[in-house]
Design a protein around this nucleic acid. Structure first.
Lengths: 360, 360
DNA sequence: CTGAAAGCGCTTACAG
DNA sequence: CTGAAAGCGCTTACAG
């Protein structure tokens, strides 16, 4: 894979100019006549010249490398998507990504040291799910961008999903389909995703004048948690018709609970919306699960763009970029239309009159 | 992130020797007295010296970089696991991975050119699922290792799962649990995974003297395909008790089919084993799905180890490393014990007497 | 066993 | 507008 091709000297010789002029002509940095520029470019093309990035990095003290530290890249499909977006943006900017995988909650890792030793221009630290973290102290906060994470202790910019907007989007979708008795199934974890989606739900229900019901079960937010939660929800309100699950896994638990155990079916009796757009789940469930896709690829993109400007950008405190989710429609939401199914009342009451069920 | 620390000159000054001696002492390449070596190392430590990898790469013409080209790293959790294994092995060998994501079936990609321009020492090309591919011509076959893929046209070493062994493992597990009427649900795709697992199934059934039944439905191997396949299987043999699904997604289709549509339950009436150990599915299904985990991380490891030796290794034609799968037990297999449930006959017949059902 | 010197392939003041 | 020269931080023949 070693490049045995022409170097800048060969190009210079072929074009009949000095290496300085080749460098200037190709980089556009110096003053070079158009004619010379043309000749140099022609020579470079015909020789298949590509600058040696290592030599360039050594001389210019810029590696054009971005470090990408990801927590548990393998355990969720999310990190992969962030990576793809980051990768694309990096390619467009002429940067390469150097990737390292660390355990969740890592403070110190020899791999991170290795990355620093590579003299990356900046670092991207991607969490495995939106939460508050402690950035490893090895990373220079002024040269680090956080993805799907937020560290209140430092001033690095962060790119995160707009969790509140996601809660609004999912809940409004159910409201627009005519549902009034909508429950939010969530977990008792103290992370921005849980908090933000719930606040979005409460806000949307408030707007619509519907009493909110939040069912909170012990985390993590798995199918099992969803199974437990929907059971509680149905005990609390046997007439509910809309379910906003914290994520697709919890939504899967709803599917598992309604079929065999009860005489309910989706979407006939219950409309369900999840979050994550985990294809493996959302596509495989019958009927397909409507869900809010998180902007992972876009987060990766934006993180790279921010990181590439980091050495130059002015430090801004609490610079956090919230990116919107996107509703992916499948078949789990029933349009109630003008005629209400079962008891679709509930308008006009104060949201504070709604229930919060906590299972522990 | 730029290292503003000591360079080799500072270490030399601190130790009272030349930079040559520092280089020799630290790399262990030249002849240096133990005493000098000790002094140099102490100086390096106290200054926190780390060699500049870029300078080293430029001078020694070895980048210590491995290119990792992955197809659609985001769409499956597999690629992530391969990456983690590769990452770990690379770290142990003092190598860094430079990662690029390409579309499935890519022949030409500017990202790959970029990787080549980085002067990586070798390349790893990881497919998104075990199949026959055409390696992009930009990659030097003598410096490329294939993962989860095989290109008959070139001589690059390849690291793949032992598909036949996986078929044997899954089928024998059902046989050992006392099942005799075991069906293999698969798809009509011409890839090594389909072919190998099926051959393993046939071999194991033959060993046990049980007639095999293969139900083949149109791909891809999704939950929907599994749903269709189990329907056909039950039409063909209403008394079957064991199901070896091509993968976890097809196994999920079996779960979806047995519950609501028929009076069958897992594992009471049907024992199911899948392949992939997709946590999102295998853990979430009720009962948990027993499945064969593919050796993804190990494949990544071995690929890096091979790649790191590639510039030195002798070219060996058709060097393919087959790594075994591992059975992950959950709750989807019932031990039939000594007393046969329903009709557990079927021994003694020739496998060729078995059926192959193809749905198109 | 130790060190002076060349050089990897570029970029970048600087001089003309 | 163009080019000679220095130098990024190492490694590596080579000489002593």
């Amino acid at each position: 894979m070693a490049r045995e091709n022409a170097g800048i000297r060969e190009v210079a010789a072929a074009a009949g100019v000095s290496v300085t002029t080749v460098s200037h002509a190709l980089s556009g940095r110096g003053q070079v006549s158009d004619e010379t520029k043309r000749r140099v470019k022609a020579a470079a093309d015909s020789l298949g010249y590509a600058p040696n990035r290592i030599a360039r990095a050594l001389r210019s003290q810029r590696s054009n490398l971005l470090g990408f530290v990801s927590e548990e890249i393998a355990t969720t499909p999310y990190a992969g998507q962030i990576l793809v977006g980051a990768q694309e943006a990096a390619a467009e900017l002429g940067l390469m990504l150097m990737i390292v995988n660390v355990k969740r909650g890592t403070i110190d890792d020899p791999q991170i040291d290795a990355l620093v030793a590579q003299q990356v221009d900046a670092m991207i630290y991607a969490s495995s799910s939106h939460r508050v973290i402690r950035v490893p102290p090895k990373l220079d906060p002024a040269r680090t961008v956080l993805v799907d994470a937020y560290d209140p202790a430092i001033t690095s910019p962060a790119v995160v999903p707009d969790e509140l907007g996601i809660g609004l989007l999912a809940t409004r979708r159910l409201l627009e389909a005519g549902h009034r008795r909508i429950v939010h199934l969530t977990v008792d974890e103290d992370v921005p995703a849980v908090d933000g989606r719930e606040r979005g739900y409460l806000e949307a229900m408030d707007e619509a004048g519907c009493p909110p019901v939040v069912v909170r079960v012990p985390g993590p937010a798995t199918a099992g948690a969803g199974y437990t939660a929907i059971g509680r929800a149905l005990e609390t309100d046997g007439d509910l018709t809309g379910i906003f699950a914290f994520n697709d896994q919890m939504a899967m638990g709803v599917y598992q609970a309604v079929g065999p155990d009860r005489d309910l079916s989706i979407p006939r009796d219950l409309s369900v919306v999840g979050v994550d757009d985990l294809r493996l789940i959302a596509d495989a469930l019958r009927p397909g699960l409507s869900t809010v896709a998180l902007p992972h690829a876009e987060m990766g993109r934006r993180a790279v763009e921010l990181a590439s400007r980091l050495p130059l950008a002015k430090p801004r405190r609490d610079q956090v970029l919230r990116l919107p989710g996107r509703l992916i429609e499948r078949e789990s939401i029933r349009q109630l239309g003008s005629l209400p199914i079962r008891d679709a009342s509930g308008g006009g009451e104060n949201p504070s009159a709604g229930a919060t069920v906590t299972v522990s």
